[in-house]
Amino acid sequence: MDILHYPFMQHAITAGLIASILCGIMGSLVVVNRIVFLSGGIAHASYGGIGLALFLGMPYLAGAAGFALVSAILMAIVTMKARHRADAIIGVMWAIGMATGVILTDLTPGYNVDLMSYLFGNVLTVPESDLWIMGGMGVLVTLTVIFFYNEFLALSYDQEFARIRGVPVGPLYLLMIGMLAVSIVMVIQVVGLILVIALLTIPPFIMEKRAKSLLHMMVGASLLGAFFTLTGLALSCAFNLTSGASIVLVAGIFFFLSLLTEKINDARAKRV
C-alpha cells in the first residue's frame, strides 16, 4: 500500500477515475444510440491531429481536439443525412485520419512518437496539469448532460417523436457528438486509444440490460469503469504489466462474465 503515497500513483488513480466518469456518461449515450463505430472513428481520426500538432510544433491537445472535433462533426452530419452510407464513410475517415497522423510523424524531423504509447497510453505518467483539464471537462460534460438530460433521452430513444415534440434534435445531436469528441481526446491523452474504446463501450454495455433508466446506466457504468480501472492498475503494479492493457483485460473478463450470466438467466427463464 506504500505505493499509494507516490504522487504518480495518486495522479494515475485520479486520471482513471475521471476517465471512468467521462466514459460512463458519454459511453451510455454511445451505446444506446448505437454509435460505437462512430466513436472508434473519432478516436482513430484524432491521431491525424496528433501528427499535425507534432509537425507544426503545436501543443498536442489543441491538434488532437481540433482534428477530433472536425471529424466528429463531419461524421455526425453524415450519420444524420445519409444513415445507410454512414458506416462506410466513417471507416474511410478512420483510416485516413490514422494514416495522416503516421505520415506527418514521419515528416517531422528528429522526433518520433511511439505509436504504442498513443494506443495504450500511460496512465502512470500523467502530469498534474492534464488532470486539471480532464477534471474541468468532466464537470462541464456532467453538467451539460444533466441540463439536457430529458432531451438527450428523448432523441436517443425515439428521434422522430422528439422532433415532433419540438426538441432541437439536430443541434443537440451535434452537441452530443462534440462532447463525445472532446471526452475521447481528453481520455486518450492519458490512457490511450484502446482503453477509451473499452471504457466507452464495456461498462455501459454491461449496464444496458440491467439498468432501470439511462441515468442509472450512466452512474452504474461510471462505477464499473472505476472498478475496472483500479483493479487493472493494481494488477499492473503487482505484476509489472502495461497499465492500459491490464485495465482493458480486466474489463474484457467482466464483459464475458456478464454475457455468460445473461445467457444462463435467459435459459433459466425459458425453462420456468
Binding site: 444506446v32 432531451e151 433521452l153 428523448a154 440490460k209 440491467r210 433508466s213
Partner: peptide, 15 residues
C-alpha cells in the same frame, strides 16, 4: 434493450 421505464416513455410526451 433501451433502459427506460413505461412511465419515462410517457413523460417524454411532456417535454
Amino acid at each position: 434493450n433501451f433502459p427506460i421505464s413505461a412511465l419515462e416513455v410517457v413523460l417524454m410526451g411532456m417535454i
